[in-house]
Design a protein around this nucleic acid. Sequence first.
DNA 1: ATGTGGCCAGTAAGGCCGATT
DNA 2: AATCGGCCTTACTGGCCACAT
Lengths: 265, 265
Amino acid sequence: MHQDYRHLTADEHEAVEKQTLRTVVQALQEYSREAKQIFDNTKAPSKAEVIVLAEDLVQYALEVAETYPINRRYAGFIDYKRIRWLPTPFGLLPQALLVDAKASTENNRETLQQSQLPMNADFISDGQHHQMAAGVEPHLELSGALNGELHAVTTSLFVHFHYRDLSQDTAPFRELQSIYALAIPHGRFKDRYNPNPETTFFGQGKHSPARQEVPRIRVYFTRLKEMCPWRLQQLKYIGGEYTEPLWRDGPGPTGALTSFAFLGR
Amino acid sequence: MHQDYRHLTADEHEAVEKQTLRTVVQALQEYSREAKQIFDNTKAPSKAEVIVLAEDLVQYALEVAETYPINRRYAGFIDYKRIRWLPTPFGLLPQALLVDAKASTENNRETLQQSQLPMNADFISDGQHHQMAAGVEPHLELSGALNGELHAVTTSLFVHFHYRDLSQDTAPFRELQSIYALAIPHGRFKDRYNPNPETTFFGQGKHSPARQEVPRIRVYFTRLKEMCPWRLQQLKYIGGEYTEPLWRDGPGPTGALTSFAFLGR
DNA sequence: ATGTGGCCAGTAAGGCCGATT
DNA sequence: AATCGGCCTTACTGGCCACAT
C-alpha cells in the first residue's frame, strides 16, 4: 500500500511544489550558459524558431535532473512531461511533472491555454467577473497490480524565455535576457490563491472575443510573486558573472528560494 | 586521432544507414503496442493532436534505444535528434541522428520541408525539371580539444504514422494502421539515388505555387522501395498477432531488413 | 483505382498597438 | 511609463479534391 498526495497536508503539498521548482531552477541555471549560446545564435529559418528553441532548451536542461522514473507515458500538447517518483520528506511521491516552454518579448505576464490551467480561475476584467475551468487534471491515475490505486499529482511549471530580436542575418540573432520559471499552484490551493475574483494572479487572456477565438488566460508575474515569492523565479543574464546557488531555501510555504544568476558566455 | 565518416566507402556508409534504421525499426516494433494504444485512444482537443502524438511516440520509442551519447546538443525544428557514438564494424562513428515524425491519412508518400531534405533533389513534374537544394548539412562539426576535427554524419529518418479517423467522442478516436520508417539517403549518394531528374523517388511538393508558399518536396514510398528495399519499412497492424523479429538482415547495400509486424493490443 | 499536383484549412503562439491609469 | 486588452499575423502540418493515367 503506497501513499500519494491525498495524504499530504496543504502545507506539505506546497512544499512539494517548491522543492520541484527549486530543482528545475537549479537545472536551468546550470544549463543557462549553453542555453543562451544556442538561443542567441541559432539561425532562424522563420520567426517561429524561438518557440522550438525554448522547447528544446527546456528539455535539455531538465532531462539531466530527473528523479526515479515511473514506467508510464502519455502523449499530448505539454512540452515536457515526466511521470516519476519524487523523494520528499513526506514520502516517495508519485508525480506527473508538466512543464511548458514559452518564448516572449514580454516579461510581465504569459498566456496559458485552458489545457494548461491547473486551477479553476475567477478574475475581473473590465469590471466583469470572468471564469475559466481548469484543464489540467489534479492527478493521473496509475493503475496496475503493483501500484493499486495510486495517484500521480500533477505539478504545473512554466519556463518563460524573455528575449529581444537583434540582427536578421548575422549572429547573434537574438538576445536572451532572462529565463523565468513559474510554479502555478495546484487546483487544490484555490482557497489560498484565488478565493474570490478580486484576489488572483489571473487576468484576461490573449484571445480575440470578436473573432470567437477559443479563450485563453494570462498569469501576471508581479501578482503571483506578491502572493507567494518563490513561485516566480528569474534567472537574469548578467554577462559573464554569476553567483553560486546556495543550499538552503527559506522556511514555510512562502519562504523564498535562493536567488540565481544567469550564466553568460 | 579519431575516424569519421569521410573514411567510409559508399557501401560502408550505406551499411551504417541500414544499421541505424534497423535499430529504429526494432525500437518502434517493441513500442508499437503502447503506441497504438495511445495513438488510438488519446482524446483530441483539436485536429492537430495527431501531430503531437506522433512526435511524442517517436521520442518514447527511440529514447530507450540510444547509443553512447556525445555531449553536444543543438536546437531546431527536427523532432528527435541525438548526437552520439554509433558502434559499427568500420569504427565508432560520430553520428547526428535526425528523425522526423509524420501523421497522415495517406500511405504512399510524405512531404518534406526543405530543411529536412538531405540530398539535392532533381525531379520531373509536368514535364518540367524541378530542383530543390538539400537543407540538411552532410555533417555537424564537433569542435573541442579532445575531438579535434571530428564530423558527425547526419542520418535522416522519417517515421510516418498512417491512420484513419474514427468516432469524434468515444474511444477509440482513431485507428493507427501502419507505422512506416524511412531512411532518406545521405547527400553523398546522389549518384546512386538521383543521378538525373528522371531517376528519383522525389516528386512535387505539397505547397501552393499560386499562393507563393515556400516550396516543399515529396518522397514517394514505392519508388524509394524499388531503388532500395530496406529503406522503406512498414510495421503493419495485424490485430493481436505479431511476429518475432529475426536477427539477420540481408547482405549488401540493398539486402532486405527482416520484416516486422506491428503489435496490437 | 492509383498516382500526382496543389489549394486550403485548422491551429497554435505570439507580435504589437491602442487605451487606460 | 507601466498595465491591460485583444486584434491580427506567421507558420506549421496535413486534409482533401481534381485530374490524369
